[in-house]
């Protein structure tokens, strides 16, 4: 495998996918965003920072192919290129799984820095899938980031935790500590958005969430059956056929790369009247 850098130097952007709260869709979003970027031709790697609770490999469908992991690389037991798993569907996509057996103290700041520096020289986008919480693993995932995607559900504890994480991003990261460098560009990605419940006043609106968090919006991913189905089969949702969720992620990915895409919120339940009366929700 000769992966010489292409004619243009790689972008080398490090993006952390974080949230504070667990179960809001960090890994799903990491998989979808990294696959979406790779689909657009960017050389992309997605790294699992959840040491001890490896799950990105299952979401990406490469769990049977893990030989070496992020921790092996940090500890010098394997070279980076040996631990990178090349995706079988998109040839610009790579996965760096984490260890299932070590604990999170194995993530040293120096080790993470070394791996990310090496990846920056080779990849356009480096997506860091953060563990839940705000402890060591999550801090390591965000420390070297250039950008952050804060995954938030329109629900009180998720929004509260996102606010906390936004505070950490602007204080406990390399960019925050380095004088003269731009702060991390943080954007919120609202997931599990249910327009019907919003209309009924049972769920906070996008505007409500943005008003509280006061950061730009990257996208709105509707509650969608396509998400569980994609996770069942180990395929990032953007590679698993058309769906409202896939479209929302594709739009978010385009915005990440700097394209202007109109914000459209399309729920799966917004089917036409005919379908609503006679068809089955699919």
């Amino acid at each position: 495998m000769t992966t010489e850098p292409k004619k243009n130097p790689p972008l080398g952007r490090v993006i952390v996918i974080t949230s504070g709260k667990g179960g809001v869709g960090k890994t799903t979003s990491s998989a979808a965003i990294s696959a979406g970027l790779a689909k657009q031709g960017f050389k992309t790697v997605v790294i699992d920072f959840d040491v001890g609770l490896r799950n990105l490999d299952m979401t990406m469908g490469c769990e049977r192919r893990v030989v070496f992991d992020f921790i092996n690389v940090i500890q010098g037991d394997a070279k980076l290129k040996q631990a990178l798993i090349k995706d079988k569907r998109v040839d610009t996509l790579f996965i760096l799984p984490t260890s299932q057996t070590r604990d999170k103290d194995a993530l040293t700041k120096e080790g993470v820095d070394k791996v990310l520096t090496e990846l920056r020289a080779e990849f356009d986008y480096i997506i860091c899938d953060s563990p839940a919480g705000i402890e060591h693993g999550a801090q390591m995932a965000m420390y070297f980031a250039d950008e952050a995607v804060v995954v938030t559900n329109p629900e009180v504890s998720s929004v509260r935790d996102s606010d906390r994480v936004l505070g950490l991003l602007s204080s406990q990261t390399k960019r925050a500590e380095t004088e003269g460098s731009d702060p991390i560009k943080a954007q919120v990605l609202i997931t599990r958005y249910d327009e019907t419940r919003v209309e009924n006043g049972e769920m906070m609106t996008v505007e409500d969430v943005l008003e509280i968090l006061a950061v730009p919006l990257l996208g709105v991913v509707p509650e969608s059956k396509a998400i569980l189905k994609a996770s069942n089969v180990g395929t990032p949702v953007v590679l698993d056929g058309p769906s409202a969720a896939a479209q929302a992620y594709e739009d978010a990915v385009s915005r990440l790369t700097g394209k202007e895409v109109e914000m459209r919120i399309q729920g799966e339940r917004r089917a036409g009247l005919f379908k609503r009366l006679f068809g089955r929700a699919s």
């Binding site: 299952m58 769990e63 049977r64 030989v67 070496f68 992991d69 092996n72 037991d77 394997a78 260890s99 299932q100 057996t101 070590r102 996770s231 069942n232 089969v233 180990g234």
Partner: peptide, 26 residues
């Protein structure tokens, strides 16, 4: 598919070789 994938993976991870593997491959 989800169930099948989990059964294969967990059978491997629960076995004694699953834990040791991280060490023997390097």
């Amino acid at each position: 598919t989800a169930k099948d994938r989990l059964q294969i993976l967990l059978a491997h991870e629960r076995s004694s070789s699953g834990a040791a593997e991280a060490d023997y491959l390097p």
